[in-house]
Simulated assay, not measured.
Amino acid sequence: MSADSSPGPAVTPDTKGFLRHAPVQERGRRRVQQLLDAAAQVIAESGVDNATTNAVAARAETSVGVLYKFFPNKQAIVEALALRYIEEIEQLLSRQEQAGIADWPIAHAVTWLVHAIMDFHREHPAYQHVYRAVRGSSGEQAILLLDPAKGVIDHLLALRASAVAAERREWHAITAVEAAHALAIQACALPPEGAERMMEEATILLTRYLTPDYAPDQSPAS
């Protein structure tokens, strides 16, 4: 599996919430991103449980003391990585909203969503490990990290069918995101033919699930 070495977004006020010391100079901000890049590489190779702060510091070519200057522990690194990924997914979905996805036939919109999530997992091999770790956390802050992407999907569903009750729509968004992520993780472990079939089945599943409320006049995928 290839390492995730793509540069992440600059430190935002939310990201700073995971830092022991928020850098004010560009050099410090670059160091934080280098540490997160290194953490993504280590986690992609060995998973969250087996990743250590010593390994992350070594991969970033710095001392563990420098790492602890910014991050109090491994959990803070994992949560900061989760936030980075969620922000990237939010940006991806927001760009697609501008492209008019809310007006697409439901099957086309779901197909795009399933493939986009699958591609994201492939391009960021640490993501599935980070997602599982944060998803399984009992910490309120960690759980809240997963809400933004669901919020974007909720918004897109509201654009399609504003008459659907907010609570019902929220559960639809939660279910769609959780199902898409879970199936994408499974697809990543399959050979190419199996992964493609899994994405097809995920598209059918979510299209049939969402069609009654968000495209009642369209026939669901068969």
Rank of each mutant, 00 (worst) to 15 (best):
L36C: 04
Y214T: 09
N54S: 13
R84A: 02
M1L: 15
A182G: 14
W104M: 10
V56I: 11
A215I: 07
A55D: 00
A161M: 03
I86L: 03
D217M: 02
Q128C: 11
V24S: 14
H121M: 13
H129G: 08
R84S: 05
R122E: 09
E178D: 15
S137I: 00
A60S: 07
R168F: 12
N73S: 14
A107T: 14
M118N: 09
N73F: 06
Y131M: 13
A55L: 05
F70M: 03
A60C: 08
H115R: 11
Q98T: 05
Q186L: 09
I101A: 13
Y85S: 12
A179K: 09
Q75P: 03
E90L: 03
C188S: 10
Q41H: 02
A202V: 00
N54T: 11
F18P: 10
L144F: 09
R208I: 08
A44Q: 12
N54H: 12
Q33W: 09
A102Q: 13
A126R: 01
V110C: 04
L67N: 00
E200W: 09
A133Y: 05
I77Y: 03
A195N: 06
P212V: 00
M199L: 06
A76S: 08
S6L: 14
R160E: 00
Q34I: 00
R20P: 14
I86N: 04
L205W: 12
G28Q: 01
K16F: 05
T53N: 01
V130M: 01
A149S: 12
R208G: 14
A189T: 14
V78M: 00
Q41P: 03
V78Q: 00
I153L: 15
A126G: 13
I77R: 01
L210G: 15
N50K: 13
I174K: 07
D4H: 07
D154K: 07
L206V: 08
T62S: 04
D147M: 11
H21T: 14
G65I: 02
M198L: 03
Y85H: 14
Y209T: 07
T175F: 15
E61I: 00
K150E: 15
E196A: 09
Y127F: 08
L157Y: 10
S6G: 07
E26T: 06
I106T: 05
D119A: 10
V11A: 02
P13S: 04
A176H: 05
A176R: 01
F18I: 02
L183C: 04
H21A: 11
P72A: 12
E45C: 10
T12K: 05
L157C: 12
L190W: 13
P105F: 05
V66I: 08
A179Y: 14
V11H: 03
A161I: 06
Y131L: 15
Q33K: 11
I204K: 09
Q186R: 04
D147A: 10
L159P: 04
P191E: 12
E88V: 06
T12Q: 03
S138A: 09
V64W: 06
P23S: 01
E140G: 09
P192G: 14
A202M: 03
L113S: 06
A215E: 04
V11L: 00
A195S: 11
P7L: 11
E140S: 15
Q25H: 10
L144G: 09
Q41M: 10
A126Y: 05
V32F: 01
